[in-house]
Structure formats: structure tokens, C-alpha cells
Amino acid sequence: MGYGIALEVWGAYGLFTRPEMKVERVSYDVLTPSAARGIIEAIYWKPAISWHIDRIHVYNPIEFTNIRRNEVSSKISASIVDSVMKGSAKPLYINTNADRQQRASMVLKNVRYIIQAHFELTDKAGETDTVEKHYNIALRKMRNGQCYHNPYFGCREFPANFRLVEGDFPKSGLTGERDLGYMLYDIDFTNLEDIKPTFFRAIMRDGVIDLSDCEVFR
């Protein structure tokens, strides 16, 4: 993988919600591959490339804390947006005072990871889209701390700091093997009529979750 990157990310909190929790939000033990991809895509994404996560290095001990957050209980439906675009006078907003509700969340605290990833060209790449071109742009943005929008750890309330790691990086202080169970891998948008989540068995060895050859379940 000559065009891979290593990106260090860290922050005060992270919330990578388990889908089986229906009422209160409970985070997975570590950053999920889909959240890691979202962080990188917040920095640099184009239709011509597709990012793939190879490894997640976990540096800080896994710690949880409970917080309460205000959330809205509804969202604007696509049908209402479509009606307004066609001239309807329906309200196109959410009344946060009426829809606000308080929910408890079990979140991670003091998180720090190094994400190893690479990208591949997609079928939307044009004649001017080369691997070298996109690689150099991604490196420049990561070196300069630039991004399309601020990356975050699962929720926008939990921003992620980032820096490009060049050369060797330290080994994790976590040792031994830890089975983290089945975790969300990504969302499969191949069939837009039948969007499905995919999962994998997360095994952390000496602080590293290797995704380069993991089995994905649908």
C-alpha cells in the first residue's frame, strides 16, 4: 500500500452508538471503522476515491462516563421537503422547544487513536484523477490541519483533533488480546432500496484492531 496514510486523532469524548440500544445511547468500546472513515472523509473526500480502513491503534485505556444530552425527537421528512420544493406552504423547520428531550448516554472519555487507511479510485474517476494527485492533496490537507468540516467522534458535540503521522509511530501501551465482540463495520449502500449494516468480530491485540483481512457479516 504505497498510498496509505496514518492519522492520529484524539479528543475528550467519543460516542459510537451500539445499534441494539434503542432508548439510551451506549458507545462501543473503541472507534468503529465507519466512524474512522467518516473522520478521514471530513478532511478529504471526492467521488473519485474511496477510503478503506486498514488498522485502528488504540492508545488510551478504555474508559466510560455517563452524561445527559438534549436531543430532538423528530426530523424533517423527505416528503415534506419534496412538497415544499413543489410549492407547498408546509413548515420546513423543527421546533426544538417542542421536540427537545433529554437522553442519557454512556460515552468514551479521553480517546486517542491512530488510523491507518488507504484509498482506491472509484468508477467515477475521470481522466485527470490519478492516485498521486489525490494522495498529495490529502497529505497537504492533513499536514496543514485543513478539513472540509470538523471531524468528530460519533457526534458533532465531540470534535476530533487530528495530525498526520509520518514515519514510525509509537506502539500502544495496551497489551494482550481482548475480544470486543461484534461491532458495526460499515453501512452497505450497494442497493439504495435495501440499505444494510455490516458487522465484524473485533479482536484487539496489543492495542491494534487489524481490519485488513477481517470477515464481514451482513
Rank of each mutant, 00 (worst) to 15 (best):
E71G: 09
I49W: 01
S105W: 03
P61Y: 01
G87E: 13
R37K: 15
M106V: 11
I56K: 00
P33R: 03
S79M: 11
Y44H: 10
I43N: 04
A89S: 15
E63C: 01
T128M: 11
A117P: 10
N60M: 06
A89E: 13
T65S: 10
T122R: 08
K75E: 11
E120V: 14
S50M: 14
M85E: 15
R69V: 04
K86R: 15
D123H: 13
N66L: 11
V72D: 06
R55G: 06
K46W: 10
I80H: 05
T96Q: 10
H118Q: 08
D99V: 14
N95W: 13
G87M: 08
R69T: 04
R69Q: 09
S105N: 10
R103H: 13
S105G: 07
M106T: 14
T65F: 03
D99P: 01
T128K: 13
I53Y: 05
S77G: 09
T122S: 09
L121D: 02
A89W: 04
P33H: 05
V111S: 00
A42S: 15
S83W: 08
L121K: 03
R37A: 05
P61K: 02
I67C: 05
I49M: 04
P91G: 06
S77M: 09
A78C: 03
E63K: 00
I94V: 15
Q102Y: 07
A104C: 06
I40A: 06
A42M: 09
S50Q: 12
F119Y: 03
E63N: 02
N110R: 00
D99L: 15
M85L: 15
G38L: 06
